[in-house]
Amino acid sequence: MATIDLNQSSIRELNEKLQVGSSGDNFTVNNTVGKHALSVGLTKDINVEINGHVGYYCAGMNQEASIKINGNAGPGLAENMMSGQVRVTGNASQYAGATAHGGLLVIEGDASSRCGISMKGVNIVVGGNIGHMSAFMAQSGTLVVCGDAGDAMGDSIYETKIYVRGKVKSLGTDCEEKEMKKEHKEELATLLEMAQMNYSVDEFRRYGSARKLYNFDIDQVDDY
């Protein structure tokens, strides 16, 4: 177990140490005081526990590593994550999980606006609410919301699946409620278990693309 104190080490020193860590290594990071770009670009299955609130772009581009933040996260948490797991015990600011391709992002509190914008395969589980324009142009992966969703959820959505337990303030263009089939309940149950969220799948509704906005229609071939 290595402990890195950000009163002593620079952000660059922290990220260099984490990036050369070996599989299974454990790191603790203290005195974060809202600093930016902590624990980014990791490529090994190491465990990082961050104590305190973090600023912009924490855990960006993560691959394989498991990162836990005991606090709140600023904008751009786990942006473009590829794999691994990122968990924040508090709230996350704007565009958490933006463009992320894979892995699991768990936000135990609320996520702000644009959560999962343009997500490309990541699974995101939010214990609380999500803000407006979440899952905008979301392409694939799953967004689970145990609280309420803000305005224009899933606007211009492609093939991401969204499960919401609470109220949805409004749906974005081409996003609609869909039937909750057996396979969806199974998928949701697995994600809730992985995220350690104790809710019944029967409390959730499913939303996804109406596929009217982006699909090529053969009947309109002459229009192009």
Partner: peptide
């Protein structure tokens, strides 16, 4: 604009913190 400015205040660690709604 950012938490790191608030972090300089005494007791910030245990403050009630939130993001203002639009």
């Amino acid at each position: 604009s950012e938490y790191r400015a608030i972090a300089t205040l005494p007791g910030a660690e245990n403050a009630r913190i939130w993001e203002p709604e639009p």
